[in-house]
Write a protein that binds this DNA or RNA. Structure first.
Lengths: 347, 347
DNA sequence: ATTGGCACTCTGGGGGCCGGAGTGCCAATC
DNA sequence: GATTGGCACTCCGGCCCCCAGAGTGCCAAT
């Protein structure tokens, strides 16, 4: 049972601890926060907070440090995001202006976010899973090699070279192109993938009669391309900033670097975070333990329109500045959404 | 003036120091290396080595540590690469078997190399600069949006979407395709880039008469794609292993992580290394200082055929095991070359 | 409920101490 | 002339001890 003032004390502890990186004592709280009560009173409140496991004392008779649970309460009830400063906003705007393509836009996004927060920045690519295939193009490179290009209405393009088990001429290519187009253009990526996989592995009873015999080889390759579309991707920046922070992670940034290299772990983590009503999500310390990141926190903001709900955010020590990082992630997410909408409008 | 035995002592010091990470004294040398002389004799040799600045004593009356110059002499004259063990060879072979495409092959290459050496592995992509453009394909996505696909004979494919300043129909696209094909197919990438840039920025006197008016927009995009082909690329793996090694880098792995994130620095470094007659190259400690990596060493092996001379290698602390790492890089480079040749033969 | 007072605890930095390892030098030896 | 054993000297690193400072918990008083 924590009192109103108790929560204010928690807020003060979180703020001071994040700022100073040192356990905060009752005396320093009354000095810096004008509570209008004495240190002894604060001590009583702190005892309650400790009962609730919102703070702990690293050693007997030492100041207090927020627990993961304490940070959680802080983020859920106490944190108020301050909007970014004008220079920060213009920095985002100029950084994100006139990207040359999606890759470029995403790369700039994470760069500006790591610059704003000083943390490792992460961004999921917009999802192409719900996109529809608009074009299938075949280019004959050699009698037994065909380049397969796929385009989706979400702006995703993919290309891959397929070897063929037989020689084909221009007429064959035209037939193949028409048959593939009939099969998947206009279809959602996931649906296209199903239809493709049906012919990629010809039935034991032999390939479907009316289709070109070389089509299953192409289908296999197209299946890979479609799988790539469905696969989530991640961009990151700022890994180097971790080097200055190793002491924040119980002495080893190894798990963080591992996760950055792995990508797939972070992708799952990003995907599974729970978004609040503002599109913001946080995952704190031990909440990430199943992913081997029990010493780290992640904050993220959803961007994009109704269809895809991808995220941008940052990963850093549990003792990070949540309000600032959330505000930065949200601001960047908004600009990013806007850029994507503009691009969509142009299409 | 260093005697024959003096060099043997240097070798012993390098080996022991790399193995133990502790300054090595005269006594431990005679114990571990069967020189057949007394510690006092070794001390005399060590004094000479110190005069030549091949070793230093971190403190008065402490064991000796090789200097960068010492490592250089060791690598140039004393190191004998031991061939990899059979299991290591089969590991490479199975790791690199049946890659799905070039990206996949490169990714596997660095993964196996970091696995073999425990260091950060780096690999330059094979160079496409000398490749020739074999295909230009245009796909009309919308009246004012065209997908431009470029293919080279080295297996490089690139695609990009170009907005057009005017609406075009199928006939226009056919004209554009033919005109672009006439301009650059069969040309080397660098030559194609020149020809393209000539029409990308129309002369003040207006676009060249006989070309389609929309061609300059496409040329600009193709120029970007060609630039991408010419640009060197790098893949890396094993950055996480640095976390365990921070004490090897005067306490901060920050410059290394920075370089890994930057890529361009490492690319230049890799490109500028000097290859010996075996295709091996090393760059030790302060030799990398201009790149901000004065605490690190890089070893690399050239792979690929006559045309492109790209490199694979590893980056690690100055006190790395040069013979092993060189042997590993060389082995991986050989397998990689073989894979690429096979692919080329299939094309 | 809040407060001042008080006894108690624990950390972290500083200083001093000492063993161990290693050196440089020298005179003796092969 | 190279090599060697001996010896005095140096320095690091670990260890212990000590103490100031900061902070706590509790209690009796308000």
């Amino acid at each position: 049972m924590v009192t109103e003032r108790g929560l204010e004390v928690l807020r003060a502890i979180v703020q001071d601890y994040v700022a100073t990186h040192e356990p905060v004592g009752s005396r320093s709280i009354v000095e810096r926060h004008a509570f209008g009560v004495s240190a002894a009173t604060i001590r009583n409140d702190m005892a309650q907070l400790e009962d609730e496991e919102l703070i702990v004392a690293p050693h007997t008779s030492s100041g207090r440090v927020p627990t993961d649970k304490g940070y959680r309460v802080f983020v859920n009830h106490l944190a108020q995001l301050r909007p970014l400063s004008a220079p920060q906003r213009t920095a985002i705007e100029s950084f994100l202006a006139a990207p040359s393509d999606l890759d470029d836009l995403m790369a700039r996004t994470v760069r500006v976010l790591t610059q704003l927060t000083g943390q490792v920045a992460l961004a999921q690519y917009p999802s192409f899973a719900r996109a529809a295939v608009t074009h299938v193009e075949l280019v004959a490179l050699a009698p037994t090699r065909i380049l397969v290009v796929l385009v989706t209405d979400a702006g995703g393009v993919s290309q891959r070279i397929s070897p063929l088990p037989m020689e084909v001429d221009d007429a064959d290519v035209a037939v193949l192109r028409a048959q593939l187009a009939a099969l998947i253009t206009g279809r959602a990526v996931s649906e296209a993938a199903e239809r493709i996989s049906a012919i990629a592995e010809p039935e034991p009873s032999g390939p479907v009669a009316h289709l070109h015999p070389a089509i299953s080889a192409l289908a296999a390759v197209i299946g890979e391309e479609l799988a790539e579309f469905r696969q989530e991707r991640l961009v990151m920046a700022g890994a180097a900033t971790l080097a200055r922070r190793e002491h924040d992670f119980r002495g080893s940034i190894h798990p963080l670097l591992e996760a950055i290299e792995e990508q797939v772990t972070l992708l799952r983590l990003m995907s599974e975070m729970v978004t609040d009503e503002q599109g913001l999500a946080t995952s704190i310390g031990t909440e990430n333990a199943p992913f081997g990141l029990g010493e780290a926190s992640i904050v993220a903001s959803t961007y994009g329109s109704a269809g895809g709900s991808a995220r941008v955010g940052v990963m850093g020590p549990t003792r990070m500045d949540y309000p600032s990082n959330l505000a930065a992630a949200r601001a960047v997410a908004r600009y990013l959404s806007r850029m994507l909408e503009e691009d969509e409008a142009a299409r």
